[in-house]
Design a protein around this nucleic acid. Sequence first.
DNA 1: TTGTAGGCGTTATCAC
DNA 2: GTGATAACGCCTACAA
Lengths: 325, 325
Amino acid sequence: MSQPTVSLILTRNPKARIAQATRERVLKIAEEIGYRPNRLAQALVARRSFAIGVIVPGFDNPFYAHVLSGAEKVAAEAGYAVLLAETGPTDGVQHLRALRDRQVDGVIIAGVAATTLPPSELEDLNVVLVNQPSSRYASVAGDSERAGHMAAAHLLELGHRRFGFIGPATPIPAFRLRERGFVQAIRAAGGSISSESLVRAEASIEGGVVAMRRLLGLRGRPTAVFCANDLVALGAHKACGGAGVSLPGELSLLGCDDIEMGSLVTPELSTISMPQRELGARAVRQLLRQLEGTAVPTSAAQVLPPKLVVRGTTGRPPDLLEPGR
Amino acid sequence: MSQPTVSLILTRNPKARIAQATRERVLKIAEEIGYRPNRLAQALVARRSFAIGVIVPGFDNPFYAHVLSGAEKVAAEAGYAVLLAETGPTDGVQHLRALRDRQVDGVIIAGVAATTLPPSELEDLNVVLVNQPSSRYASVAGDSERAGHMAAAHLLELGHRRFGFIGPATPIPAFRLRERGFVQAIRAAGGSISSESLVRAEASIEGGVVAMRRLLGLRGRPTAVFCANDLVALGAHKACGGAGVSLPGELSLLGCDDIEMGSLVTPELSTISMPQRELGARAVRQLLRQLEGTAVPTSAAQVLPPKLVVRGTTGRPPDLLEPGR
DNA sequence: TTGTAGGCGTTATCAC
DNA sequence: GTGATAACGCCTACAA
């Protein structure tokens, strides 16, 4: 019997009219010898690899670990492979090239500013951005500006008037949006946030430590600090512990993202929760939709709502606590 | 000019004798049109995909995130792609199949007991195990038994005599080895560790919380507890905080792995440090060696030394602290 | 219902 | 030096 006949049977092509006898014989033998089609060869002729690339900046940040995890799950369920690329600040292009050379059907880019990638490299490639809205590409993002608003609203409601903000010094738009949302809402409500209490830090725990030390040294020190992500918030938390500043008695601290570590520290970190796995999962679904031709590449920009999670680091400002208590 | 001629030039094949003129012309045009060879097609004829698979059980455990990160880095540098598979407790085989179908040149398996995978699936496949010594496959592992010894030595030296142990209830040998090393060393030194103070927990923070609550409720409660990994140690840490048990005054707590979170909690977690990124990096190097034919698949079993990191949760037992102080 | 022919993008082996 | 030709493993017409 010929090879294409076998192929017809094995691909379960519906319009194949095959003798029941041969079909069974083929299936049985295939089973016996443990035949498995070569996906590479399939990809070559189909001009589709059924693989996607995921570009992230280090999984040591649990945020991206979760995004990645969510992405991997739905990709795997859909039969797609995930090619992993972890980029530093500069080598994004190489990784992207490597992925293209391997004929990925599309890529998901998280935590790397799309603007730092030359558009020519993204051309005729299916792209979904995570956490960075864009007019050129599809994106799935948490609503960062709203997160900033929510942070402000929560702290204002507690009675705070003097605020600080710590934001990572990266070109990722999400952080700028959080900052903008926060500062706007604060100012609109008549709160104050001086330019020196608005500090940039490295996007890491250590960065948060350094930044918080700066804030603590300020005259007219803020009574509430919002951090653009939990990692720096935890650094800030640590710095307060080291400096003997009690949370939330002397200072309220609010993070953003909601990573697990946040509930390990004492007091537990209050934060604005972003749906991390969901971001990854949706990004892949969106990408698949584009691949299946169901969606136009640039049309979609999903925005997911954040959620306030009050734990132990936010409370009333010191001047509003009765002295007697 | 013919297509194979072009191929000869582009692959920089040294034994190609080509007219300088044509060569330059080809290179120039290739540059202009941005030609990039199709790695899939290359893989098809070379019968090598230059891709490896990495199987891990969830990156939400920072330990594996780091292993993965180390692995990705050296793979990328060597021009290999990394296909990611995150498996639950049961679907290891499917993922493995998917990877094979994509013709990966080899796989790295971390955190999934190789014994739960049918050997037939691993046959004629290059495998490197992370953190599980094996006589069948190459492996790279931290020295878990020694870690157990070191833990015991440290706590014994501080003066402890009554010990507890919390270990994840997974079939991963590393944890058994840590337990065995610990218990052996304790008993050899005349310390005691009752069977009820040797508890199994889910390999997560929550698991650690539950297990520690059990230990705290024991009559003749241990004065020092060793946890088989930092995640459960942090859970235990949290449980102590919740129960008002002061660390290390009333209880000494020692973890294993050394994940970053450990230095976020107060007091910071003492631990036995395992070289996580290094495990991933070495695993890939070993795999590549096998692929290049430099090493025999089953021969190598690298064992990396752990390191004691004393931070804030280990100290003298309560009965040895002078009451007056 | 089955077999034949062609091609996906490469590389390798030869004659020319 | 160069250019056919075959092969990698698979799929899709189309012809038998």
